[in-house]
């Protein structure tokens, strides 16, 4: 079974966010990681490959540094990778990103596309659904359990207060949620081998795509106002709790 995994490089979850002089998000000195949900997707792909054979291909769209995240996925056990890297994609929205990724996938043979359910940087959870639409594939979103059966996958999809067990014919797009598996750490051997694995860089020109106009446009960034620490009390529970109840009912009026 051939699997494509989409990964995005994102800021570390600990990263402090600052704006540059011209009001953009400053990426200088920020530690970069593979989007945590994509690790679940990579892990799942490798496990399926280990059980059923086939090849795992990583596809990522990002800057030069995104190579590090791609190498990490190769070190975990993926076989090869494609990195779409083009300055013209600066300012691309998810509409455009999905079209570009779809074009990369059109030239490949795959049974399953695995992705994270959301990228923790811009928190959009748009790319997989949009990509599935462009490719005309069925999708299962926010999946915590996946089983491969004959020509299909059976997925546990997280709903609001429920779990849907879905039968999804292949090829399909499945997005990973925490709980799907425990991602492995790359072994030393894996890291060495990853250096020799194929990592192909492509531009929009290579894909034969024009730079397309975004359908949504970010016009500004702001930092939130810091939350002020409130009242902190210490003492006998009877006393502190009664102060809390007073606060909740009289001051904050939330109960």
């Amino acid at each position: 079974m051939n699997i494509v995994v989409l990964i995005k490089q994102t800021f570390d979850t600990e990263a402090k966010i600052q704006l540059t002089g011209d009001g953009k998000v400053n990426d200088q000195g920020v530690n970069l990681i593979m989007n945590p949900y994509d690790e679940f997707a990579v892990e799942e792909a490798i496990r399926i490959k280990e059980a059923k054979g086939g090849e795992v291909t990583i596809v990522s769209l990002g800057g030069d540094k995104a190579q590090e995240a791609v190498r990490q996925a190769l070190a975990m056990g993926a076989d090869k990778a494609v990195l779409v890297n083009d300055p013209a994609l600066e300012g691309a929205d998810h509409y455009v990103v999905a079209k570009v990724l779809a074009k990369v996938l059109e030239g490949m043979e795959y049974d399953l596309i695995l992705t994270g359910w959301v990228a923790i940087d811009d928190q959009s959870s748009q790319v997989p659904g949009r990509l599935a639409e462009v490719l005309g594939l069925p999708q299962a979103n926010v999946v915590t359990k996946l089983e491969v059966e004959d020509g299909k996958v059976v997925c546990h999809r997280e709903g609001d207060g429920s779990v849907e067990v879905l039968e999804v014919p292949l090829p399909a797009v499945v997005t990973a949620q925490k709980g799907l598996n425990e991602p492995r750490y790359p072994s030393l051997k894996g890291i060495m081998q990853a250096k020799k694995k194929e990592l192909k860089k492509v531009s929009l020109g290579d894909l034969g795509l024009p730079a397309e106009e975004a359908k949504a446009k970010v016009v500004g960034y702001q930092l939130p106002e810091a939350r002020q620490a409130g009242k902190v009390v210490e003492g006998e529970p009877a006393e502190t709790v009664s102060q809390l109840i007073e606060f909740l009912t009289k001051e904050a009026k939330v109960i």
């Binding site: 928190q123 975004a214 446009k217 970010v218 016009v219 960034y221």
Partner: peptide
Amino acid sequence: VFTRPIYAGKAFATVEKNGDIM
């Protein structure tokens, strides 16, 4: 014009329509 949290609420982006449907 829409406001949405990014980077887990550590920043906000203001987003506008740039096509026919938003």
